[in-house]
Design a protein around this nucleic acid. Structure first.
Lengths: 225, 225
DNA sequence: AAAGCAAATATTGTCGACAATAAGACTAAA
DNA sequence: TTTAGTCTTATTGTCGACAATATTTGCTTT
């Protein structure tokens, strides 16, 4: 899935932001490692001004942590952090679902249903390939969030937490056997939205994310605490 | 109340951020007006580099909106925006309450109770003065949020939404007759937290914020849609 | 007179260099 | 040998100037 809601990268800071974002999420720049401005500037062949702009935005989406006069470090993944993140997502995406049930246009709901059908066929063809599943999952969530029509909520979920969620998924190797089950859950959520049952949509989405969290936690235990 | 959770302003960008933040919140820089980097740089007597750093953070807390190559504007207040903001606050601070009921130490709860008692006496002395009430209200909410111990939640509420909430309150002239009632509601929330009843604390906080929202909306209607 | 185009102007984005602060290396004393 | 302090080095914060983009102004054309 192409990163959502992001304006076309018109400026140099935009471009380098996308590159560094990808590098961090995929572990190309190691979690916990120090960020050197001169080094990155050389590596991406631009001056420090746009680079610092990019770093400011990386801090915004919690991918790095900056200390004044001391520099930036890539965020460290932790069980505690994962828990906090999913705790928040449960509540926020639940709210998004409730609002989506109120605000999504019938046409948008129809499109979302079409998307799910498409995921189903894709899933059958590409059985086991995690990338498509992940992209599909995120795409579904993404559309529901947009359907809430709450600008602040959209900003938080799509801009500020989205990449961190991806980072946890990628670096913990989330491919898992949850594919088909997640698909059914999506379907149920969509039905609730289509029935304009915000309360049920909220509940189902919270459960969906809680299940996803437990799944990741299980992987964490296997890898090592 | 001193602005919370903000590191001591060590850098020039920090200082100018605080100044501009205050200016925007209090309407000293008009809502909807254009931000001129050269003008502000001259006004605060520094170069554009730290100023732009400050602008990036102002965008982060939704006080300005930037368009690439076209500049920044102070955010415009709207009924729609207010509704979205309070919708989100309801959910988030409800969650914060629930978590606070789980995670706050007994000592923290005791301190919070002391704070409320102090508010009560202050309120009796300074009957009608809005500043103290607002500060007290925000301080109570602030402590509960910190009590949640969820770093992402704290960041969103205290860093990203806090100043915008203040902006609505200040510019819509929120002093209102809700003082004593809000105080009672705080007391009830605290009791729920002290009883470790997260569910009730959640519910009460949501109602508290909903009441606050309705109060502001009433003011909005009086002023003009 | 109105609309569309073109030059001029102003603003934002980027750059390289300097200043201020923090991290690291080295020396000296216990 | 360890520890404290100082000096060196490297990194971040800030500056002023230049390049690229958007806005405004004025002119031309219908």
């Amino acid at each position: 899935m192409q990163t959502p809601l992001i304006r076309p990268a018109v400026t140099a800071a935009d471009r380098v932001l996308l590159e560094i974002q990808r590098a961090i999420v995929e572990g190309d720049i190691a979690a916990g490692s120090k960020i050197s401005e001169p080094e990155l500037a050389k590596r991406f062949d631009l001056s420090r001004a746009p680079l610092r702009e990019a770093l400011a935005r990386l801090e915004r989406c919690h991918l790095i942590e900056r200390i004044p006069n001391a520099g930036a470090r890539v965020v460290k993944l932790s069980t505690q952090g994962l828990l906090s993140l999913y705790q928040l997502r449960e509540t926020l995406e639940g709210l998004a679902c409730r609002l989506a049930a109120e605000h999504m246009a019938d046409s948008e709901i129809a499109e979302l249903r079409a998307l799910l059908d498409q995921h189903l066929s894709t899933q059958r063809v590409r059985e086991g390939e995690s990338y498509y599943q992940e992209a599909g999952d995120l795409d579904f969530h993404y559309r529901v969030i947009l359907g809430s029509k709450n600008a602040y909520l959209i900003n938080i979920l799509c801009d500020e937490l989205y990449h961190l969620v991806r980072m946890y998924r990628v670096q913990l190797g989330m491919n898992g056997p949850r594919v088909s089950r997640a698909f059914d859950e999506h379907k149920a959520i969509l039905n609730a939205i289509a029935n304009r049952d915000g309360e049920l949509a909220d509940l189902l989405m919270r459960r969906h994310i809680a299940a996803s969290r437990r799944n990741i936690e299980k992987q964490l235990e296997q890898t090592g605490t």
